[in-house]
């Protein structure tokens, strides 16, 4: 059950997106997020959707993987769609039965909502988790935040903390599973009984887990000291990050997409037809 969480799931590959610089991908993700939240016109949404589709195709991640990633938000999707359709009360009335009235504006805003959520999830997960390993990602974050080091922000330490946290997610998950199994074997009941009883049963998981996290932290810090770790100053990197021509193309394309979304917000679908008609 716990293993269904897809946080930080990375699929090794050799696509153009896999090979792009992590800093590029982070900036692209920011542009995509900004675009999804500024889009309002129908045309903008079409562009947004097509751009996300391009990301998905270029990444060569299987459709099943992406759909699985969408599974956790399926409920939100259905829920919001349902309310958008039922409670919009403007535009043209398309369908009426008993108290249910469906208007065209409801359908349109529901469709926009769906596109917005799907693009948000798919673009960020394709860019930041499916095609970027957690370690490379933290390297990228460190690289982007580097200017802050000038004003004495401990960027390197933040990056280290982040990559360690990511690194220990699977380890702690495995341990959680073990602890749950062990406490179940001693008769702990996590799924029935009063709320208080269940909360108490959870304590039997949290305390050992906390103890083990602290144990790992102590062991790790000692191991790091033994191997001569002394912070970020003068440290070189195994993986040198390099902005290549393709990275600039990616960035420009994303910026263009963002600009197009903003400009086209003013125009609807009918304007497009008008354009061709003229």
């Amino acid at each position: 059950m716990i293993r269904d969480i897809t946080l930080g799931q990375y699929f090794p590959g050799n696509s153009a997106l896999h090979n792009a610089d992590p800093r590029t991908k982070i900036l692209m993700a920011i542009l995509f997020i900004a675009a999804t939240f500024t889009a309002s016109g129908t045309l903008s949404f079409i562009i947004l959707f097509l751009s996300a589709l391009v990301l998905f195709i270029v990444s060569r991640i299987s459709l099943i993987t992406v759909l699985k990633g969408l599974k956790p938000i399926l409920f939100i999707l259905i829920f919001t769609t349902f309310f958008q359709i039922l409670f919009s009360r403007s535009g043209e009335l398309l369908f009426e039965w008993w108290i249910i009235k469906i208007y065209d504006s409801g359908l349109i805003s529901a469709a926009k909502m769906i596109v917005r959520i799907i693009v948000l999830v798919v673009s960020t997960s394709v860019l930041l988790s499916y095609t970027t390993s957690p370690i490379v990602l933290t390297d990228g974050i460190e690289g982007l935040l580097k200017p802050l080091a000038k004003i004495k922000v401990p960027v390197h330490d933040f990056a280290l903390i982040m990559s360690l946290a990511l690194r220990f997610i699977p380890t702690l998950l495995e341990e959680t599973e073990k602890i749950i199994a062990a406490q179940k074997s001693r008769g702990a009941n996590f799924s029935s009984g009063s709320l208080m009883k269940r909360a108490r049963a959870l304590i039997s998981i949290f305390i050992p887990l906390l103890a083990s996290a602290i144990r790992h932290a102590l062991d790790l810090s000692e191991a790091m000291i033994c191997r001569g770790y002394r912070g970020g100053d003068g440290r070189t990197k195994l993986r040198q990050m390099k902005i290549r021509f393709s990275d600039i193309v990616w960035l420009l394309a994303s910026a263009l997409m963002f600009a197009a979304v903003i400009i086209l917000n003013k125009y609807g679908l009918s304007d497009l037809f008008g354009l061709f008609g003229a």
Binding site: K178, A182, Q183, S185, G187, I203, P208
Partner: peptide
């Protein structure tokens, strides 16, 4: 069955709480 078949895991001391 949990009570009938007692199971002591590997490194059981990590489950004390």
């Amino acid at each position: 069955n949990f009570f009938r078949v007692g199971l002591v895991f590997q490194y059981p001391e990590y489950q004390l709480f």
